[in-house]
Computed example of a mutant assay.
Amino acid sequence: MRTLVIGGTSGIGLEVARARAARGDEVVLTGRDPERSAEVAESVEGDVAGVAVDLNDTHGLADALAGVGTVDRLVIAAIERDHNSIADYDVDRATKLAVLKLVGYAEVIHTLLPRMNDESSVVLFGGRAKDRPYPGSITVSTVNGGVVGLVTALALEMAPIRVNALHPGIVGDSPFWSGKPADVLDGYVSRTPTRRLASMDDVVDGVNFLLENRGVNATNLYIDGGWLVT
């Protein structure tokens, strides 16, 4: 089985790639930089290759993915962190993120669709900012909401291939959050019903569930410890 992880050179994407390789999958992971993609792939135990893919280079995605063969499992975890308020709106940053996450995600799937089969499955990454916005999340909240619509449309058009999305909350041991001050993280923990933040292992478990459970389709899975009920 071949798993392709778009955005697999760091963070949660890398943990997904490691987990899939540990299951025995042939894994292809991608990042923007060809040298780093190859270096990270070399560091992961198993049958792992690295490919350079830039989701903002939408017209170049077909060429970038030309060497990837059949795809049984596709995970698109690539993200771009953005702080963009409506009072101080940066059109260039907003456009970059919108293209990456909506047009780029869709073009990757368009490119790979002929290489999938009826048993293939796809997981896209959104995020909780669509439901719990914060100052500066204008673009992040917008594109993560767009992922929900994208999943619904893809599941209809790609049937019987399954398409789902995973929306993480605050992932406490991720590279982005683990360096935050303890009092900041404690504040989030206190507002989380499980009294613990989601972990990267929790997210990887969620990805594997969506990839493998054949009864789950057009679903948005939230990994946040029930944060939204508080």
Results as ranks from 00 to 15, higher is better:
Val140Gln: 11
Asp90Ile: 11
Arg162Leu: 03
Gly225Asp: 09
Ala106Lys: 08
Val53Gly: 03
Val103Trp: 07
Gly215His: 15
Val216Trp: 11
Ala41Thr: 07
Trp227Asp: 08
Gly104Phe: 12
Gly225Trp: 15
Pro34His: 09
Glu80Thr: 09
His83Trp: 14
Gly127Asn: 11
Glu39Phe: 05
Val151Asn: 05
Asp82Asn: 13
Val143Trp: 07
Tyr222Arg: 04
Glu80His: 04
Leu154Ala: 14
Ala165Cys: 12
Gly179Tyr: 12
Thr9Trp: 05
Leu166Met: 02
Arg191Trp: 13
Asn217Gln: 09
Arg128His: 08
Arg196Ala: 10
Gly226Met: 03
Ala106Glu: 14
Ala94His: 15
Gly136Leu: 06
Tyr134Phe: 14
Tyr222Glu: 08
Leu4Gly: 00
Gly215Trp: 15
Ile86Asp: 02
Ile138Met: 02
Val216Asp: 05
Thr152Ala: 13
Pro133Glu: 05
Lys130Cys: 06
Gly13Ala: 02
Pro168Tyr: 11
Tyr89Cys: 01
Leu113Gly: 08
Val204Lys: 03
Gly149Ser: 13
Phe125Met: 01
Thr219Met: 13
Gly126His: 03
Gly24Met: 00
His59Leu: 07
Thr58Val: 15
Met116His: 06
Asp205Gly: 11
Tyr134Pro: 00
Leu4Met: 02
Val71Ala: 12
Val163Lys: 02
Thr9His: 01
Asp186Lys: 00
Arg2Thr: 14
Ser174Glu: 13
Glu35Gly: 11
Ala66Thr: 10
Gly225Val: 04
Arg196Phe: 08
His59Gln: 15
Ile161Ala: 06
Ala78Cys: 06
Ala62Leu: 07
His83Asp: 14
Val99Ile: 15
Val99Glu: 09
Ala153Phe: 08
Ala17Gly: 00
Gly7Val: 03
Asn84Gln: 04
Val143Asp: 05
Gly187Val: 01
Val148Ile: 10
Arg23His: 08
Val108Phe: 13
Ser199Val: 02
Gly8Asp: 03
Leu156Phe: 15
Leu228Lys: 07
Val229Glu: 13
Asp173Pro: 07
Asp90Gln: 02
Gly60Thr: 03
Asp47Cys: 04
Phe176His: 05
Thr230Lys: 03
Val203Glu: 02
Thr3Glu: 04
Thr3Asp: 03
Val71Glu: 10
Ser178Trp: 05
Met1Phe: 06
Glu35Tyr: 07
Val171Ser: 02
Ala52Phe: 09
Asp131Leu: 01
Val48Gln: 13
Val207Cys: 06
Ala87Thr: 13
Pro34Ala: 04
Ser37Ala: 15
Gly172Phe: 12
Gly169Leu: 01
Asp33Lys: 04
His59Val: 03
Asp131Gln: 14
Asn164Lys: 10
Val16Cys: 04
Lys180Leu: 12
Asn213Phe: 12
Lys180Tyr: 12
Gly104Gln: 05
Gly169Lys: 07
Gly225Ser: 04
Val27Lys: 00
Val207Phe: 10
Gly104Leu: 08
Arg73Ser: 10
Pro34Asn: 07
Tyr134Ser: 00
Leu97Thr: 15
Ala78Lys: 02
Met1Arg: 11
Val44Tyr: 11
His167Met: 10
Gly136Pro: 14
Ala106Ile: 03
Leu154Met: 07
Leu61Trp: 12
Val123Ala: 13
Tyr105Cys: 03
Ala198Gln: 05
His110Gln: 15
Gly226Trp: 05
Ala22Asp: 01
Glu45Met: 01
Leu197Trp: 09
Ala106Ser: 14
His59Trp: 04
His110Leu: 11
Ala21Phe: 06
Leu154Trp: 14
